[in-house]
Design a protein around this nucleic acid. Structure first.
Lengths: 192, 192
DNA sequence: GTCTATAATTCGATAGAC
DNA sequence: GTCTATCGAATTATAGAC
């Protein structure tokens, strides 16, 4: 924990508290108390509570989108595209678990018109993933599954992973996580 | 919408609002406004906002536990136990999607000691599911997977389903949902 | 069951001195 | 950057009349 700026410490503390209690339930006084200073000092680091939420939410969201776009614009097969999308999803989650938690749990607290913007962007992400699945089904790489249902199920099976990174005491092996989740999504749990 | 009592209408409206905005962000004034009466009237139906949360959360939670316990105490194989646990999970979700949403999204708002109690009960549920998976691996029905990771992934792949029931305009086919999700979990998405 | 009125508290945010 | 002081608004909850 050396060489971290006060602002970084502020943000790390804030994200941790929000993860535990939720954005709305985490007061600026909670944050100040944990950092051993008074409430007014919070405004040395942020413009407003809402601005903090928006900045982090759209920043991590953008990272997911950029990774997805890079893969989609490649010439890989649907199966390989999906494999890489899963891998990059896991990688971003491992790097920024608390921001992923914010993304999953607290987007409802966005105010209009930002909330609507967020929902639209999320649907874009889902639609792009769905297109890859549909392509894979059409090409016979994937089973004749319900593409819309499977898209949401697949994303849900990845979306919980930030908890493991936050809660796990011992360091986790990212390569093994990726193998396990990819195997689960590609092959399920039954033994052949 | 015939023959529904005022209390039922109150509760349905409340759960819908909480689903949209979250428990903490949904004020008693929001609820009163949607029902076209004043705030004080809310207390004709509940003792407190916290009591409402606790009652619904533990009630739906109990239903999940009871269904799980019935299946676990049977003599079915691990594979068949899991199949039935998935089916009952989907059935409860279909029957009570808004309460499931509360369970998934708003348990953080419980206050101690109820919050700790909830977390403990949820871990019990996960552990029982994990035991079935472990048994299935030991008996060679399931692959040699990471049982702990897979337990959480499997649950996550079911936990989003309430959204479909809430948002879907047209009626959905529960039999088909069950088939799709069971196939996903058992066999993944790859074509053999 | 419905209302008005209000208590008691909490919260986000600002002003201004050091 | 840190503090004290405070404002204005919002929220849960209660009292009591109709």
């Amino acid at each position: 924990m050396k060489g971290i700026t006060k602002k970084e410490k502020f943000l790390a503390t804030t994200l941790q508290l929000i993860h535990e209690k939720g954005f709305k339930a985490t007061t600026l006084r909670d944050i100040a108390q944990k950092l051993n200073f008074e409430v007014a000092n919070v405004y040395n680091y942020i413009d407003s509570k809402q601005a903090l939420l928006e900045a982090y939410l759209f920043d991590i969201s953008d990272e997911f989108h950029r990774a997805q776009d890079r893969i989609i614009s490649s010439t890989y097969s649907p199966r390989e595209k999906l494999r890489r999308m899963i891998a990059s999803y896991i990688q971003i989650t491992a790097k920024r678990p608390y921001e992923q938690a914010l993304l999953v749990n607290d987007w409802r607290n966005l105010k209009e018109p930002r909330r609507q913007e967020f929902v639209k962007r999320r649907k874009d992400y889902e639609d792009k993933l769905m297109a890859v699945l549909q392509e894979g089904v059409d090409q016979g790489q994937f089973r004749a599954l319900d593409v819309e249902l499977t898209t949401h199920t697949l994303l849900a099976s990845l979306r919980w992973l930030y908890k493991k990174h936050i809660e796990e005491a011992k360091a986790i092996n990212p390569v093994e996580i990726e193998k396990q989740l990819t195997d689960f999504i590609f092959s399920g749990i039954l033994k052949n």
